[in-house]
């Protein structure tokens, strides 16, 4: 593969199976997640891409009857974040998430971004103010909201709300950011601004994104995994996947022949 593959690994899924009760939703998934790169997960609805993403911050632990098998190792400490011995809260403090629909808390813009910091025990006003500003700047929202930090977050537009959620997720300096179809509820312009933002963020963060929109994966990601029926059909350089994939199934999917 190409030279960029030699970048360091931030995480790696190794033969990961996941069960919703008796239903095996993920089957033997093994892919690397490269440090400071964007990895996209694509595939038709119900292929397990969101399920896979949500393994990374142990979201499945919130609901009964879910079970993991296999490993996701997180570097640099090479810890298996799926191990029952690892507290899911610890995992979520290291790996943050942006959801499909903007879900700001019904609090002020400031408190939304500050919440993750407060959970980490940071309550000093001056520290919070500084970190909130940095996070909002990193999320390209600062200029739009700096005069109304104490307004309700619900008064922002959809795209601004999603960028607020991104600011909230990156305020805690996560090691990996998970994006679960972050633009599916947004208009094309807001989508473009989020994509631009992701491109800037990848200098500092490792990003894993699930998207329905193949062109989005082609535009923003460095690596792409095509999933189908709970399996990774093909994992490759994004350039390769979208010009000349190795597998026929991948080719059929991305050219719009099924799915």
């Amino acid at each position: 593969m190409s030279a960029s593959v030699q970048a360091t690994l931030k995480a790696e899924a190794k033969d990961l199976n996941f069960y919703y009760g008796d239903f095996k939703a993920l089957k033997g998934i093994s892919i690397p997640v490269h440090d400071k790169k964007i990895t996209a997960l694509i595939g038709p609805s119900g292929c397990g891409k969101s399920t896979f993403l949500r393994c990374f911050n142990r979201m499945h632990d919130l609901y009964p009857g879910n079970r993991y098998e296999g490993e996701i190792t997180l570097n640099p400490d090479n810890v298996n974040i799926l191990s029952p011995k690892v507290d899911p809260i610890e995992v979520r403090m290291r790996i943050s998430m942006v959801f499909q629909k903007p879900n700001p808390f019904p609090k002020s813009i400031f408190e939304n971004v500050a919440y993750g910091l407060r959970v980490r025990g940071i309550n000093k006003r001056s520290v919070l103010e500084e970190k909130v500003e940095v996070a909002l700047q990193n999320a390209a929202l600062w200029n739009e909201v700096k005069d109304r930090l104490h307004d309700l977050a619900f008064n922002l537009s959809g795209g601004q709300q999603q960028r607020l959620c991104i600011a909230r997720a990156l305020a805690i300096d996560p090691e990996i950011m998970l994006f679960d179809e972050p633009t599916s509820a947004l208009d094309p312009i807001a989508t473009a601004s989020i994509e631009e933002l992701m491109d800037e963020l990848k200098d500092r963060f490792t990003i894993l994104i699930v998207t329905h929109n193949m062109q989005q994966a082609a535009r923003v990601s460095d690596f792409t995994a095509f999933m189908y029926l709970g399996e990774v059909v093909e994992y490759n350089d994004t350039k390769k996947i979208f010009t000349n994939p190795d597998k026929q199934q991948t080719e059929d999917y991305i050219t719009g022949r099924f799915g």
Binding site: N57, M59, L62, I89, E90, R92, M93, S96, M97, F99, K101, N103, P104, F105, Y115, G116, R118, V119, R120, C165, R168, A169, I172
Partner: peptide
Amino acid sequence: PGSIREAAYALGATRWQMVSD
């Protein structure tokens, strides 16, 4: 909505923090 609960959990909140905050 569940999405608000998930948002709080995703930031590392415990159950009690999620409920009380």
